[in-house]
Amino acid sequence: MVAVLYLVFGVFLETKTSDFLIFLICGRIPFSWFSRSIGNATGSIIAGRGLINQVSIPMPFFPLLVVFQDAFKQTVVFVFMFGFLYLYGLDISWVWLSIIFVILTQFLLTFAFAMLVAAVTPYIPDFRYLISTGLMALMLGSGIFYSYTDVIHPDHQRLFLMNPIANLIKNYRQVLMDNVLPDWSALGLICLGSLVLIMIMTWYYKKTETNYARLIAQ
């Protein structure tokens, strides 16, 4: 995907950003993680039908399993990504260590949204199509292959950064490409929002736990 985007935007359309390949990698790889986890979590409760109908099991188990599996795979991807950035010649400094906080914030956000989408799909199965369209829209709206400071009107940039994925990608680039510490207040807000959503979803799952088995058995 990074190669295709590079070919289209970097070579054919001659995007003027310097280090366009690095710019793409720092946006696309974190986005892929979010997109893959949410896509997998969408159908996770339905996919667990076999177990759910035979044993009393908490429903959050299924989206969480997906989120942790994907996070584990992603650590390997990140190791390769950082290795590539190093070989490419980016300056590595202590600031890079702060990327851990950006990654943890993204993990929390993914966790929260995975719980949400997994809860909806058993009630509305067609919701999964909406999710895939939504993820595509999110990709276009998160500044993966364009720099929001160049493209978006200054008055609208605040609005653009209210999209947590766009904000996280901005922070990935800020740390890895510019060697600047992340925007702590933005990360804090995303964490807080994610924790609130996780708490709401935990309460919801507790309240409706035994409904899901009947729902997906039909």
């Binding site: 035979q54 044993v55 009393s56």
Partner: peptide
């Protein structure tokens, strides 16, 4: 087995482990 919830009435368990043989 506490897999399905009930819409009315009550179920009381006086045991810790219930297993549906699967």
């Amino acid at each position: 087995a506490n897999i399905y919830g009930v819409d009315s009435g009550t179920v009381s368990w006086h045991c810790k482990q219930v297993a549906l043989l699967s």
